[in-house]
Computed example of a mutant assay.
Amino acid sequence: MDNAIYLALDFPTWGVTERFLENNQLHGVPVKVGMELFFREGPSIIEKLKANNHPIFLDLKLHDIPTTVKRAMKNLAALEVDIVNVHALGGGEMIKHAKEGLLSGSSTHKTKLIAVTILTSHDKEIMNNQLLIPGGLKDNAVHLAYTAKQSGADGVVCSVHEASLIKEKCGYDFLTVTPGIRLAETGFDDQKRVATPKFARENDADILVIGRSITKSDNPYQAYWKALEEWGHGVK
């Protein structure tokens, strides 16, 4: 995909979001819309962003019984965003139904379906001791990615630290979408497995999701272009 860096719009309302994008001249940049904003504004937020030419990753992480997810995805398909996602822990049957829902909901737009492997806010201790999932982070992420691929997903959300292994297992046309991206001078906040754009590019990430490193910056416009420069597509 041509759009390499999606800006996470982690804002409470459309008004706050619109002011941020306008004030910082981030017109038409790829954006990620998550639960906070979508659950407040509903589908209208997608139409408003599309009207301003923003490619959109709709990050709702659906996780329910297969039939429910299929019906939800059929509705979401009508929004014609670029990317939507489910939780890979929902299982292969759920992912298959999600893809069927997307395909049946729109005959003209090809939304990419990706599956979340292990959240970047989770580490091995949380995975093993709280979720009671045995094994290592990387092994589990690769296994979930392969299950997603076999079930019709176009890619996964994963940590940068698993992206190369997932490519080896699933093929280099299988998308790796990586959150937990931070510019070098910013903190890690609640993310445990983080990386810089440069590190992500060197480790087979296809698409980056960046939020607070840009939105909390003193100069978000400059921070966005710095991220692009690190990634390798910005103006040198």
Rank of each mutant, 00 (worst) to 15 (best):
3 N>T: 09
7 L>G: 07
8 A>V: 11
14 W>N: 09
14 W>D: 06
14 W>Y: 13
14 W>M: 09
14 W>G: 07
16 V>W: 00
18 E>H: 05
19 R>A: 14
20 F>L: 02
21 L>I: 03
27 H>I: 12
27 H>N: 14
27 H>P: 01
28 G>F: 09
29 V>L: 11
31 V>T: 11
32 K>Q: 03
33 V>I: 12
36 E>I: 14
37 L>P: 11
41 E>T: 13
42 G>V: 13
44 S>K: 15
45 I>F: 12
47 E>S: 14
54 H>R: 14
55 P>I: 09
58 L>M: 10
60 L>Q: 05
61 K>H: 06
62 L>C: 02
63 H>C: 12
63 H>P: 09
64 D>N: 13
65 I>K: 04
70 K>E: 15
71 R>D: 07
72 A>D: 05
75 N>H: 14
75 N>V: 08
76 L>P: 06
77 A>P: 03
78 A>S: 13
78 A>F: 08
81 V>P: 08
84 V>N: 07
84 V>T: 05
87 H>K: 02
90 G>C: 08
91 G>Q: 01
91 G>M: 00
92 G>N: 08
93 E>H: 10
95 I>S: 00
95 I>Q: 01
96 K>E: 08
96 K>P: 02
97 H>T: 05
99 K>D: 08
99 K>V: 06
103 L>P: 06
106 S>N: 09
107 S>I: 06
108 T>E: 10
110 K>M: 06
111 T>C: 15
112 K>A: 10
113 L>D: 03
119 L>G: 04
120 T>Y: 01
120 T>K: 02
121 S>V: 10
122 H>F: 11
123 D>A: 01
123 D>T: 02
123 D>E: 03
123 D>I: 03
125 E>Y: 12
125 E>D: 13
127 M>F: 10
128 N>H: 03
128 N>C: 03
130 Q>I: 06
130 Q>K: 10
131 L>E: 13
132 L>V: 11
133 I>G: 03
134 P>W: 10
134 P>H: 13
134 P>R: 06
139 D>T: 15
144 L>E: 12
145 A>W: 04
146 Y>H: 15
148 A>R: 03
151 S>Q: 07
151 S>Y: 10
152 G>H: 10
152 G>E: 11
153 A>W: 08
154 D>G: 03
155 G>P: 07
155 G>D: 12
156 V>K: 04
159 S>F: 04
160 V>T: 15
161 H>A: 13
161 H>D: 09
161 H>R: 11
163 A>Q: 05
164 S>R: 15
165 L>I: 00
167 K>F: 12
169 K>R: 12
175 L>Q: 01
176 T>H: 00
177 V>N: 03
178 T>N: 00
179 P>I: 05
180 G>R: 00
181 I>S: 02
183 L>I: 04
184 A>F: 09
189 D>T: 04
192 K>W: 04
194 V>W: 00
195 A>Y: 01
195 A>L: 02
202 E>I: 03
205 A>P: 00
205 A>S: 10
206 D>Q: 04
207 I>H: 01
210 I>L: 02
211 G>H: 00
214 I>L: 02
214 I>A: 10
216 K>H: 15
217 S>C: 04
221 Y>G: 14
223 A>P: 12
223 A>V: 09
225 W>Q: 15
226 K>N: 15
230 E>Q: 13
232 G>A: 10
232 G>C: 11
234 G>N: 13
234 G>P: 14
234 G>K: 07
236 K>A: 12
236 K>R: 12
